[in-house]
Amino acid sequence: MIKKIIIGAVIAIVAVAGGSYYYAFVYMKNKKFDMVNAEATSITSVELVKAFQTDEAGSNAAYLDKVLQITGTVSATGTTQTGEKTITLGSEDPFSGVMATIDSTAAVNVAEGETITIKGFCKGFLSDVVITNAIPVK
């Protein structure tokens, strides 16, 4: 009887340890956020920049790490040093905009002056509002 309890306990410990390892280091490593179907707050790039410029702490509380759906006019396109595509949406301030890095799986082909809508994570405000993992919204 004791032998059965010990074997059962060992199996349970191994199962819990294995499950925890799988969750932490395999499942979470390969987990992909579903940006397409994620709920988002809609805002224009002009409104978003103005919000951060007038109340950065309040805007951080409202938007940090949230999924935003942002509409604006493309003021610049480019790439990061690792080749990720970037799109900057303009604001009323020529020195500030919304700069988004585009998700590597998303196809996006836009030109300066076009009005587009993108969806991505808001990471805060430097000279631009920074958005990551962005995808275009059709």
Binding site: Y23, A24, F25, M28, K29, K31, F33, N60, L64, D65, K123, G124, F125, L126, V130, T132
Partner: peptide, 24 residues
Amino acid sequence: LVKGFKFENQLMEDHFNENYMEST
């Protein structure tokens, strides 16, 4: 922006921001 750091593992990224860097 501290929340702009990307980890290979989402769980690590969450712990980094919430438990260590207090990035909010």
